[in-house]
C-alpha cells in the first residue's frame, strides 16, 4: 500500500508536524482534522462515519483538555485513539452461551465473506474447549456449499447436519429448524448454522434469513464481513440489521493489507460489537477481536 500511504502513515506524518510545535491553533486543528478525514477515507471508513468521527475529534481538540495539556499534539493523538476504541466497542465481548443447551449461532453475510470457513473455525475452537458443536448446512444455494461445509467439518473434527444436497434443492428454513431437534436428541451443545451469502438489496433472500432466524431462535447471530469492503459496508450492515438483525460482527481476511475501515463503519452504524477476527484460510487463523488492538492497528500507535 506504499503507493498511497495508509492511515497510520498519514496520521504519523500529521502528528509529527504537530509535535514540533507547542500550542495548537484552530488552524492546526483544522489541518489535523482534514488529514484524519483523508486518512480514514483512504482506509475505507464510510463517509458518514468519517464526518461523525472528525466532528467529535474537532470539538474535543478545540476544547480545554487540549489547550491545557502539556503536550497538545499528544493529547489529540490520545483523543483520536479514545474515540476509535469507543466506536469499536470498548471492552472485548465474548460469545453468549445459552443457559440451557444447545447454544445456537447463526452466520449471515454477503457472498464470499467467509461464513463457511468461519463455521469451521468456530467449531474447532469450541471443540477444543470441550464443547460438542454441530455444523448445519443451510446454504442450499451456492454450488457445493454443502460439500464445502462437510469438508470443513471434517477438518475441524466435528459433526455436520446436512440432510439436503443443496445446489438449489431443499428448504434451508426447514433444515435449520430440524437441526435444533437433532442437536437436542443427540446432545450437541452448540449449533452453528451456515447460511447462503446474500446481498442487502435482495429482499427475498433477506426474508429467508429472517425466517431461518425465527426457526432456530439463535443466541447469537454473527454478521460476517470482509475487511476489504469499501463504502458499501454501511448500506449492507444496515440491510442485515433491518433484515435479520445481528448480535455481533466478525471481520474476516484481516491477514491482508486492507486497513479494515469497515470495522469502524459497521460498529458505528449498527452499535453491534465486533466479536471475532478471521485472519487466514486455515481453521486456526481466528482470534477474539480486541477493539484497542484494532484501534492501534489503524493508528499504528
Amino acid at each position: 500500500m506504499a503507493t498511497f500511504g495508509n492511515l497510520s502513515d498519514r496520521l504519523a506524518e500529521t502528528f509529527k508536524n504537530l509535535r514540533t510545535k507547542g500550542k495548537l491553533s484552530p488552524a492546526d486543528v483544522d489541518a489535523t482534522v482534514r488529514e484524519i478525514r483523508r486518512a480514514l477515507l483512504d482506509a475505507d471508513v464510510a463517509l458518514e462515519v468519517v464526518k461523525d468521527f472528525t466532528g467529535k475529534v474537532r470539538e474535543r481538540a478545540l476544547g480545554d483538555e487540549v489547550n491545557k495539556a502539556l503536550n497538545p499534539a499528544q493529547q489529540v493523538v490520545q483523543i483520536v485513539n479514545e474515540e476509535l476504541v469507543a466506536i469499536l466497542g470498548g471492552e472485548a465481548r465474548r460469545i453468549q452461551f445459552a443457559k440451557k443447551p444447545p447454544t445456537v449461532i447463526m452466520l449471515a453475510g454477503l457472498q464470499g465473506a467467509g461464513k463457511t470457513t468461519l463455521a469451521g473455525k468456530l467449531a474447532k475452537w469450541l471443540a477444543k474447549d470441550n464443547h460438542t458443536p454441530l455444523l448445519v448446512a443451510a446454504d442450499l444455494q451456492r454450488p457445493n456449499a454443502v460439500n464445502q461445509l462437510q469438508v470443513v467439518a471434517g477438518q475441524a473434527g466435528v459433526a455436520v447436519f446436512a440432510p439436503e444436497p443443496g445446489n438449489g434443492t431443499g428448504n434451508p428454513v426447514k433444515v435449520a429448524k430440524d437441526s435444533i431437534k437433532f442437536a437436542i436428541d443427540k446432545q450437541y451443545d452448540v449449533v452453528i448454522v451456515d447460511t447462503a451469502g446474500r446481498l442487502g438489496v435482495d429482499a427475498d433472500m433477506m426474508k429467508q434469513a429472517s425466517d431461518i432466524r425465527k426457526a432456530v431462535d439463535p443466541d447469537e447471530v454473527l454478521f460476517v464481513i470482509d475487511a476489504m469492503i469499501g463504502q458499501d459496508a454501511v448500506a449492507t450492515a444496515k440491510a442485515f440489521q433491518d433484515g435479520v438483525d445481528f448480535t455481533g460482527v466478525v471481520l474476516t481476511k484481516l491477514d491482508g493489507d486492507a486497513r479494515g475501515g469497515a470495522a469502524l463503519s459497521v460498529a458505528s452504524v449498527t452499535g453491534r460489537p465486533i466479536i471475532f477476527a478471521s485472519t487466514g484460510e486455515s481453521l486456526d487463523d481466528f482470534e477474539p477481536f480486541y477493539p484497542d488492538r484494532m484501534a492501534s492497528r489503524i493508528l499504528d500507535l
Binding site: 503507493t3 498511497f4 470482509d226 476489504m228 458499501d232 449492507t236 491482508g256 486492507a258 475501515g261
Partner: peptide, 14 residues
C-alpha cells in the same frame, strides 16, 4: 475484482 471492495482494489490489481 469484487464490486464491494474499497481502496484495497488498487493494491490487488498492482
Amino acid at each position: 475484482l469484487d464490486a464491494t471492495t474499497g481502496q484495497n482494489g488498487l493494491a490487488q490489481a498492482e
